[in-house]
Amino acid sequence: MNNMLNGKIAIVTGAGAGIGRATAQLFSNEGAVVYAIDIKGLDWVNSGSNVGRIIPVELDICDFTAVKDSIVSIKKEHGHIDVLANIAGLISYELMPMIDYNQFRKMIDVNVVSLVHLMSLVARIMQRQQGGSIINMASMVGAKGAKGQLSYSATKGAVIAATKSAAKELAEYHIRVNAIAPGMVGSERFKAVLAEKFAQKMNDIPFGRLADPEDVANLCLFLASDKSSYMTGQIIGIDGGAII
């Protein structure tokens, strides 16, 4: 532990599992007070050394009222918010004729609209303190596209565009906004359901393995910390050399 986030207040969405959970845990280990947000799956927070250092907040990020109430409460408790890691997201795989448009609309709501709403709320607090770091979870497919992932890639392309626009709008307040574009990540869900389906594609990863959630969390930590204090508007790939 290097206390890279000592004294910082951080919000991590999608903290119930995978990258979000790994990020919340790592931020806490590095000294931040972490508000771990998810619609479910936060039982892990209430165990061991997490108690009191990571605060579970069970809510649906599409519920604007609940989100705003939570942000106001954090602001009143601490007076500042230093890091927002927008990690919550939905994913789908289907060929174009198979797109479920209700699912697509829901994905836009979670992956894009809620992310923009959270950025907007937290940025209003960060503006007053003249600083902060916002990290958005994009995807390699948002930048490059992928067969069978048109709807998902469209939402992640939107995340990339939103990140760049927010970075431009918030730079004068010294608020940094960056996005991470992972390749294939070996989350529990991926390993359980999709690993076989993508076995062939794994041969395309020069490092010969999927990313672990902790690999991506480490990049989140760098972007959240003052070590990246001169970086904004960047979309950073983390894919084991898949795209070079």
């Binding site: 604007f64 602001k75 009143k76």
Partner: peptide, 14 residues
């Protein structure tokens, strides 16, 4: 709106 929020300790809806 920022001044209103600061003075009255509120957060306005969009």
């Amino acid at each position: 709106t920022t001044a209103l929020e600061d003075e009255f300790d509120i957060m306005l809806d969009a």
